[in-house]
Nucleic acid binder design. Structure first.
Lengths: 103, 103
DNA sequence: CAAATATATGAACATATTATCATATAGAAG
DNA sequence: CTTCTATATGATAATATGTTCATATATTTG
């Protein structure tokens, strides 16, 4: 109660961090991030094939991630190409891979 | 569909990573991790005072994090001192602080 | 042993998240 | 203009998560 914390994590920052982590904390969405790290941009169809994910469900996830600022979408004709807006998100994956968190 | 992914993230790893991230993705639980990074070990009461969190709710969160292997508990008399089992979890916080994810 | 304190637990409830399904829209091609 | 393909959307259903409250347990102290 008297000591000082190392990190400068205000309650607001904790909220924000939790919000982002929550957006990321789902196997499909992690899969999307992983793919878009390796591919720069992919269409919904391509992502669906990679992840073996049904179109509607995938679309919901993509829309969600876009709304929350994690992805950007580029419509080209009928297709929509998604890419990472926050490249740094990948660091989370590296982090998860490198840490000993039972992985 | 023909290219090779950089990362070695199998579906199982994605599941596991999502599972851990989900366990972490909550303001109170991030607060706990942050505290336990700075303090080595703290009693439930101490954590509750820091985080202004009601005892029962906090206890639920702590128990949950313990079950999922993120924390360890050390009972000393009436008190229970919690500490991080996975020190590496802290990297997630660093990661969140350093990345531009709207923080 | 009674009382006080620290923590845990379980049920009930509220809320949020995820998945599914049916349907809509928009562009391309015939 | 009809059909086909790619994607989005909205409603619903299924499931999971977070919170609260009342109560239990264990330990310490008088």
């Amino acid at each position: 109660m008297t000591e000082i914390q190392q990190r400068n994590l205000t309650p607001e920052k904790l909220e924000k961090a939790a919000y982002i982590l929550k957006t990321v904390a789902h196997p499909i969405r992690l899969g999307i991030i992983n793919l878009l790290d390796a591919h720069e941009q992919l269409s919904v169809n391509q992502i669906g094939e990679y992840l073996k994910c049904e179109q509607s469900l995938l679309s919901h996830h993509l829309t969600n991630m876009k709304i929350k600022g994690l992805l950007k979408a580029d419509k080209q004709g009928v297709q929509v190409f998604y890419s990472l807006r926050e490249k740094d998100l990948i660091k989370l994956l590296d982090c998860m891979e490198n840490c000993n968190c039972n992985m």
